[in-house]
Write a protein that binds this DNA or RNA. Structure first.
Lengths: 223, 223
DNA sequence: GTAGAATATTATCAAATTGTTAACGCAATT
DNA sequence: AATTGCGTTAACAATTTGATAATATTCTAC
């Protein structure tokens, strides 16, 4: 349901890059890397990571510069930033935190500590408004509503859940069994026709050809 | 506009307590202290601080125990917690972060670093303003009153809390469970009808169509 | 092209959910 | 002691929903 968190690591030492990459990836994050400050900024703009880990001492642009520059942009106002540094010098650390960093890790890096800090940071961040935009169709799980071309459409609960499920992976075919277990659970037993009826109601209300039947298999959401 | 943030510091060393107290107070925070784990828990319940700074090594109850115990309570789910420790031992640090701490500071404490971290943490937390303007409707959490088109409306406490909760995230659907745990707490058990009745009273008093029922899910505030 | 299977459609009904009103206990206030 | 207001619940009404049966239609394999 929730896309993986994206992390961008910027450090000029390949070893560190690799270690962090490995550990964070193993933890389930989508990891990207950059080997200097400039590249970090460029990649950040493309990837739009949830967290950026910046080495302070880097060629071309140092971590603090990168941080300051990114914080200027509205898109990075809320992005989490962690600094890495070899120095255990007060001044640098303070400067880093004041430039809008969320945490600070001193080298040598202990992977477990890093992971814990990363996890702790994400725990704090209010989770994204699970809203999905698909063309003119918008599905907002939090607000529990669906709108097409900014026109609200009222769906009953099961209808909403079903559409929400199908739309969570556009193009993917959901088997009838899959749908049953995800929406009705494994305990409840309902007939196959029930799904059809709900599908029909959704199609009717949306008045939009976006749910395709895959005969003998299931349904998928498209366009 | 914004009440001062409350910080509770727990440490058994009076010197540290004093230094932190002085520094944080100078920074504009309302500081409280406790000299052991048990006292920390008691004071925390009364004061409801925004941030708790816990020494790990404390008599009676250590910092991690305190943290775990507080995190059990719904009121402290979101409270920020920072650990202090003399050890630079990986294991402890990880255990601390995993028990739900938000940061970690190793002794000897460098006041500037501490202040920066504290400020950084608060910067992350979405500040809830005490007064909300929504169209012609105004909700003032501090004064505990609601007005529509500058006309005061008298709501009973539960009614106010309920409206205030719903209005805190306009559009978001609050599940009945969510409402129960946030307004009545997890201990108290009240029937489902109770929510309805309060909703009705609010609707009646506001005489404004702003609370939408999402059947089978909950309620949401809109417009 | 046709039989058989799978899905679509429609109407119906029971169950689940919420709305409404009145009444009760309790605490604070007069 | 009497009054008032609040929070809760009970009881019942009103509404919505979800499941099914029955029937029609479409698709697929042969």
């Amino acid at each position: 349901m929730s896309t993986r968190k994206k992390i961008l690591i910027a450090d000029d030492e390949p070893d560190i890059l690799e270690i962090l990459h490995f550990n964070l990836q193993a933890e389930g994050y989508e990891v990207h890397t950059a080997k200097n400050g400039l590249q970090a900024i460029e990649k950040a703009k493309i990837i739009q990571p949830d967290l950026i880990i910046l080495d302070i001492m880097m060629p071309i642009k140092n971590g603090i510069e990168v941080c300051n520059e990114l914080r200027m942009l509205p898109a990075f106002q809320k992005t989490l930033i962690i600094f890495l540094t070899a120095m255990s010098d007060d001044g640098t650390e303070v400067k880093g935190l004041e430039s809008g960093a969320d945490d600070f890790i001193t080298k040598p890096i202990r992977p477990k500590v890093l992971l814990s800090k990363v996890n702790a940071l994400f725990r704090r961040v209010p989770k994204e408004s699970s809203s999905v935009q698909l063309g003119d169709l918008q599905i907002d799980r939090e607000k529990y509503n669906v709108s097409y071309k900014n026109q609200d459409i009222t769906l009953a609960r099961k209808e909403f859940e079903l559409l929400s499920l199908l739309a969570s992976k556009p193009g993917k075919v959901f088997l009838r069994n899959e749908i049953l277990s995800k929406i009705w659970g494994t305990e409840v037993i309902v007939g196959d026709r029930t799904i059809d009826v709900h599908i029909r109601k959704i199609r009717q209300k949306l008045n939009l050809d976006c749910i395709t039947t895959v005969k003998g298999v299931g349904y998928k959401f498209e366009l």
